Amino acid sequence: MNESHSISLTNPLCELARFGQSPWLDFIQRSFTENGSLKRLVDQDGLKGVTSNPAIFHKAIGQGDEYDTRIGQVLAERKVDAAALYEILAVEDIQAAAKVLYPVYETSRGIDGYVSLEVSPHLAHDAIGTLAEARHLWKRVDMPNLMIKIPGTQEGVEAVRTAIADGMNVNVTLLFSLGAYKKVLDAYMAGLEARHTQGLPVSGIASVASFFVSRIDARIDAAIDERIAGADPEAKTLETLRGKVAIANARMAYQYWQGVTRGARWRKLAALGAQPQRLLWASTGTKDPAYSDVLYVDALIGPETVNTIPPATFAAFRDHGTAAPTLTQDIPDAIQVLHEADRLGLDLAGVTDALLHEGLDAFAEAFRSLRDSMATKITSLSPVMM
């Protein structure tokens, strides 16, 4: 038995492939790519993709001095503002990571190997602006294994449809509710149909729908705890729902996906060579220390899905995760959990709506902070003119 085969049998991350799931990493940083760490995850752990967001770039670029040498070089070559400087650095990071993952893209025939770059969160409610920036970033990065990340707002979904019709790969982010997800899946198919109507191929276009998980439990569990502390007469039933609503919500999204992909509309597109838009589980780091640190990986493993995993959770799953086909288990229980949550007034719809707005605000704030950091670095690192 060769070493690589032995690794695949003992590493839970590699075993995910047996059940049709692709592990991606929710992290990007220049040194991580340059020092070979990213490639090691590909080679040893079966890593198949990378996602980024404004908060991740803020930590990578805006804090510390890792990028200062490159920033100094850029400033010596040209005059740039904060937005332009950020774009230069982010595009370089995305291109470097995409090169590392390109062999995965080739081997998987375009199913995996993607790196995501997000449009400005300040455009979340501007369909025209989102599409314009998506087209700009698509051309700027110029890598076939790029995914443009677009938030799943009403305006974002409009942009997704056209971006798919244009032939871009798209990662639709900040999806919390089944209702929002249904619109995204419809937009993906509508974009492919529009492209086919134009006489263009629908093969070779990839998309994921990033469905967020643990943030829902954090909010729902807090409401449960508050009611239990207040001696709610339904305290015992409420306690049984802790840590279950988010997984039930995700499992029902997958049930919906399965139904759509069995339908005539999708079968027609598949016959033309279209790839299904995969569900990607996001926000899968455990926030409550009372739960397993791999809860949101263990519980959501199933065919044609992705889990974008934060670094600490990635390492934890490698160490003690369990690869098993869990996503379609206990569907009646998932239905019952959501029924009880509704009966008890836990307001999942209100929670998911609030989390979308909070997520948009958080990414917008991270983007503002990043640009502020870039402005500070321009001031401090610009060459002194004699």
Rank of each mutant, 00 (worst) to 15 (best):
I247T: 15
I205G: 02
T162E: 14
D217G: 12
D217C: 14
A194D: 15
E226D: 12
K183I: 00
P201I: 11
R215K: 14
I148A: 03
A190Q: 15
Y254V: 07
D217P: 01
I247Y: 11
S177Q: 08
D232W: 09
P201W: 12
D166F: 08
L178V: 13
K244V: 01
L174T: 02
I224V: 12
Q198W: 09
A194G: 15
V202N: 00
T153C: 07
K182M: 11
Q198N: 15
G156W: 01
A253F: 08
Q154L: 08
D186M: 01
M147L: 11
A190Y: 01
S214A: 14
R242N: 06
G199E: 12
L192I: 06
S203N: 10
P201C: 12
V208R: 03
Y181K: 06
V141Q: 04
D142M: 05
Y188I: 03
L185K: 09
A187P: 02
V172Q: 02
S214D: 04
R251I: 10
A231Y: 10
I150V: 15
V202S: 02
Y188F: 14
V141S: 07
G204I: 10
A246S: 15
L146Q: 05
Y256W: 15
E155Q: 14
T197A: 15
F211C: 05
A163R: 03
E193I: 03
D166E: 13
A229L: 11
M252Q: 15
F211M: 12
K139T: 09
E239T: 10
S214C: 13
Q255Y: 09
S210R: 10
L175M: 11
Y256I: 07
G191D: 05
G204W: 11
R215G: 02
F176L: 08
G167H: 07
A223P: 02
N169R: 00
I224T: 03
I247R: 12
A163L: 04
M168K: 00
M168F: 04
L146F: 08
T197Q: 15
D142S: 13
